[in-house]
Design a protein around this nucleic acid. Sequence first.
DNA 1: GCCGTTTTCGGCCCGACTGTTTTCAGTCG
Length: 576
Amino acid sequence: MPVHNPEIAETFNKYADLLEIDGANQFRVRAYRTAGRTILDLSQNLYDMVKEGKDLSELPGIGKDLANKIIEMVRTGRLSQMEELKKTVPIELLDMMDIADLGPKRIARLHQELGISTIKELEASAREKKIRELPGYGEKIEQAILDDITRKGKARGSKERLKLSAVESATESLLSYLRKIKGVKKVTAAGSYRRRMETVGDVDILVTHTGDSDVMERFVKYEDVDRIIAKGETKSTVVLRFGLQVDLRAVSGESYGAALHYFTGSKAHNIAIRQMGVKKNLKINEYGVFKGKKRIAGKTEEEVYEQVGLPYIEPELREQRGEIEAAREGRLPRLIEIRKIRGDLHSHTNNTEGRNSIEEMAEAAQKKGYEYLAITDHSKRLSMTHGLDEKRLEEQIEEIDRLNRKLKDFTLLKGIEVDILEDGSLDLNNSVLKKLDLLVCSVHHKFNLSQKKQTERIIRAIESSPVFTILGHPTGRIIGEREPYDVNMEQLMKVARDRNCALELNAQPERLDLNDIYCKMAKDMGVMIVISTDAHSTAGLDLMRFGIYQARRGWLESNNVLNSRNGKELQELLKK
DNA sequence: GCCGTTTTCGGCCCGACTGTTTTCAGTCG
């Protein structure tokens, strides 16, 4: 079984943690983490790259040494150096890294002085009040450790990242609460929330205010606050009732842009920008851009970028995935905006598992200003959704034709979300499929085929489809619940490009499939993307914004997105 | 361990808050 990129990245990260506890050089530790990051951002499989003999040391942050370690992991599935280190630094110590206030230094001390290796032993020592005896420790840290162990015992995985959609409403309510406080001027959510990442670990909020406002006081007294982790003049941290951590930072108007840039991240992007600053003899922090002691910029983000010779970079691009080089060379993308979307190409009705009728869906889409909506109910294999067989699909086609004669300036497209069976054939006969405008072809079962079989299965479906084809949620992943199935995406995209098949970016917040990295890959390879809501009700059509966020993170411009075309252009493309 | 628009050796991003201290280490982002 080939090793996957995330496993290699994970091994590097674990090794970095162990090294840190072992007291290794911090820059060596950082090198492993940087490499882990690079690997996670890779669109290509390291396994394939090694097989093809590609030079891994050309990847950023990966030199000769780490390249060889990757090759070892691909070939043997393990890292011998890791096994060595584990002999002196027990791997169980890493579990303690999740405990609040415990980091590598304190864990090393607990291990050396008290012989603690597991969370169980840690808890016992804390209860026996042994930890407070150690130099640098005290009662409060001991208690904080105990509290955190108890809390985590109750709610395992409470530190998990939450889906963007899940934090959106809580964050927006908090923002409007803060905006109403007297003396508060600007309030902005920064961090991964502003970069529109599919999941958010915590929310960073930035405020500017007149010096005499009591914004920090009011923040920690917000009704949804469960506990306060820190409270200071310029920075406070709380945890809200459903587990979301929120940081609030207060800065002066002079520093607003620098702070916004700083707290928006990503960390990797910020580091790269600050390094560019260092080369120009500038110090960049959250208060501004400084030449010696003199602040020369910081009021807006544009000013900060200008100082390092770059144009403004959109938050969604700030991931250190080539955006700085693109900015320098004047080839930043003009990211797609939601107002460019002219229709939705994946929706369900109450003929299968949807809630609303075709007519209601059409009305809702029209109300959004769309020119078209594709009705794509499930096919018969998905019996639990009461999927359509050939006869019922024929009836639906007739119903849509009838409705289209009534509709003005709006077209219902006839489609189906047809199951791709295990052998790559489609779930319905071609005789009825060819009467449709388009197919959304999706995999809904047999997720665990080998990469080769899964890829061949999907390619066969694309090649045998009698009309325009969209590959629905192309990796099948459900965020936090189901891993993507194993496909050779490069091969798939090549076929899609050559056969004029589009790949879907499914806007359901738990799917967002394709992910950002694959969106960029599709763009680079010239594959058309469709952003679809997969709506199961009229309200579901509103999920489009999540698809747009992901598309922007994937560098997509409106000309990369099929449903930014108007009705006429689309109809012509579908006929090809 | 990586990397080079001052460099193949000597650098490697920056600051707030807390707890334990009496000037700072550790954690966190």
